[in-house]
Design a protein around this nucleic acid. Structure first.
Lengths: 150, 150
DNA sequence: CTGATTGGTTGTAGCGTCGAACTAGTTGGT
DNA sequence: ACCAACTAGTTCGACGCTACAACCAATCAG
């Protein structure tokens, strides 16, 4: 009867355990050990992957308020990692693109991240790896189906 | 050759996607929608589950600095959810236990959490649920094996 | 051209974390 | 006994992350 509830409790325990164990609650370090604030890492990762974006587009991807994004971008431009570009067309839009330094930083982060996750994978028996990845995919879809209206 | 790397990148993407989608980056709300700060929720959850703890023991479980724990506990006692008890023996130790109000709060949180996760589960095809949970268990073990020295 | 909408910025406020410096009990060596 | 080293917690200062509300500027719809 309460099997569903049981499963939910276990699931909850697993996820919170993972969050803590993996160090996801520390805002000023990426879980990968690099000294880059985590939200900045997310932002440049996104910009590195998907070219120039407007601020609000970035905000949607990161699920952040526009005011938060505004500040975040200010920090990134301060570091010299992001440039506010202009574009023909709508003059309200702020287009964001990585500077060369930003690309470099994003690349280094990606390497560190890959190393961290490779190590994580190494601790998973090889034959289970695809299963784990599939499961996470399912989980993300489930979470999106619930909270998301994109 | 770079299959491992590929897998690592995918895994990374899935996890970050989950963190964002599930709202894990918002400090002042639990992902379960209750208006309790997330770190307080973690703390009373721990105390509710595993009886009285010293402050440093709580800190170890939550993977927090002692100074952080000190403040956190101050907030919780301020809410009337936690009591600093005394014990025979070492006089330096601060023993923490939930007050009745704290137990009640912990219970409500557990319910809300369970509801949230039940909903998450509902979005996962039934036959995949055990797989997903197993996968997360594996993942937590992998993360612990890497980062943990308990 | 005026009013509503959209993209961004700034002000305010709160949560969450750490490291360093400090106090107070405990333990161990002489 | 005594003093040094250690351990548990507290306080201070600093910073990161986020949201909401109030605001400005450009665009769009009528």
């Amino acid at each position: 009867m309460s099997e569903d509830l049981d499963q939910a409790l276990v699931l909850q325990g697993r996820i919170t355990a993972f969050v803590r164990t993996f160090g996801l609650h520390q805002p000023d370090r990426t879980p990968c050990g690099t000294p880059v604030p985590i939200s900045e890492a997310h932002a440049i990762g996104e910009l590195d992957r998907d070219g120039p974006l407007t601020q609000s587009a970035l905000g949607k991807r990161l699920r952040l308020e526009k005011s938060t994004v505004s500040r975040l971008v200010a920090q990134l431009t301060g570091r010299g990692w992001v440039r506010r570009a202009e574009r023909d067309g709508d003059a309200r839009l702020v287009w964001l693109e990585l500077t060369p330094a930003g690309s470099r930083a994003a690349g280094e982060l990606a390497v560190a991240r890959a190393a961290r996750f490779t190590e994580l994978l190494r601790n998973i028996p090889e034959e289970q790896r695809p299963t784990v990845i599939d499961a996470l995919t399912t989980l993300v879809e489930a979470a999106a189906g619930r909270a998301d209206g994109d």
